[in-house]
Amino acid sequence: MPGKMLNEVTATRYITPLREGGSLPGLVEADDLGTYVMKFTGAGQGRKTLVAEVVCGELARRLGLRVPGLVTIGLDPVIGLGEPDEEVQELLKSSGGLNLGMDFLSRAIGFDALAHRVSPEEAGKIVWFDALVNNVDRSWRNPNLLVWQGDLWLIDHGATMIWHHNWPGAPASAARPYDASDHALAPFGPDIASAAAQLAPLITGELLAEVTAEIPEVWLTDEPGFDSADALRRAYAEPLLARAATIHERIEIGEVGAK
């Protein structure tokens, strides 16, 4: 399929666990001298979380939204032998092989709606994107937004595209509306119509083929109901393509967005 695969690096040092997230990501150094937030195949929902991160991260980037760069990280669990936390030890042991890394945005701070202003245009694009991928994890309680060098960056897309946990029900699930009443950016009057006019035409079969081609094949093997990795890639693309055209008509913000 078309598209450039994610760069692959090798973890050389496990620095520390990051306990803000439920899946216990870790901060690691790699052989390219980069520092990454690493998400593990052995955590929580396993490889499906990593697939969601790749699809959403690479799609967001192509739509002009800011997301940390992604790489795949080869992990030899031996690098964590000195880690005293047994939970971390078990996570490393169960995650040998290919995992996912995100560029570590040093000195980034968490988004605070009281301290940072967001334009209706930018808020609209992010809310529209979250509606497209059905992101249920960008609420005011847990924004999953960082402010880095004065700009807003999107992180943590593992809880998106809930339909990939039940493929037979994917068409019905993907057809549902999106409730943005609790969205972290709802108070900024997101301009959904403008966002849809700009972004929806960009969501094409070709673009989604390019994005899904970035998913490592090892994360797509042995999925019940699919005879090949490419068939599963197409299954990821189809709900997004169908959803893009009309999801702006089914975003529910309610009174929160009118403040």
Rank of each mutant, 00 (worst) to 15 (best):
Leu105Ile: 02
Gln89Ile: 06
Pro120Tyr: 13
Leu208Ile: 00
Leu207Glu: 08
Ser106Met: 09
Gly44Lys: 15
Lys259Ala: 11
Leu208Asn: 05
Glu86Asn: 12
Ala258Glu: 15
Pro120Phe: 07
Thr10Ile: 09
Ser94Met: 06
Ile109Arg: 13
Asp31Gly: 14
Thr41His: 08
Arg19His: 11
Ala231Trp: 02
Ala123Tyr: 02
Glu87Arg: 14
Leu24Met: 14
Val147Arg: 08
Leu185Pro: 03
Ala186Ile: 02
Asn166Cys: 05
Leu65Trp: 08
Ile109Ala: 07
Lys48Trp: 13
Gly101Arg: 11
Thr12Pro: 07
Met38His: 06
Ala159Met: 14
Asn144His: 14
Ile109Ser: 09
Ile155Lys: 03
Trp153Asn: 04
Met161Trp: 01
Leu70Tyr: 05
Pro216Arg: 01
Asp222Ala: 10
Asp31Cys: 03
Ala180Trp: 00
Phe40Leu: 15
Val256Pro: 06
Ala123Ile: 12
Ala174Phe: 01
Gly169Leu: 07
Met102Ile: 07
Gly44Glu: 15
Leu27Asn: 01
Glu53Asp: 14
Ala108Leu: 04
Gly3Pro: 01
Val127Ile: 13
Lys259Val: 09
Ala175Thr: 00
Thr160Cys: 15
Arg13Tyr: 06
Glu58Thr: 10
Arg62Met: 07
Asp32Thr: 13
Ser95Arg: 13
Thr221Ala: 15
Gly158Asn: 09
Ala186Cys: 03
Glu255Tyr: 10
Cys56Ser: 15
Pro2His: 09
Ala197His: 06
Leu33Tyr: 14
Phe111Leu: 06
Trp148His: 12
Thr12Ile: 11
Phe188Gly: 10
Ala197Met: 06
Leu81Cys: 10
Arg141Leu: 14
Gly74Tyr: 11
Ala235Cys: 09
Tyr178Met: 00
Ala172Asn: 07
Ser139Val: 06
Leu100Asn: 06
Arg141Ile: 08
Arg117Ala: 13
Val78Glu: 12
Ser181Pro: 02
Val67His: 01
Glu206Phe: 00
His116Arg: 14
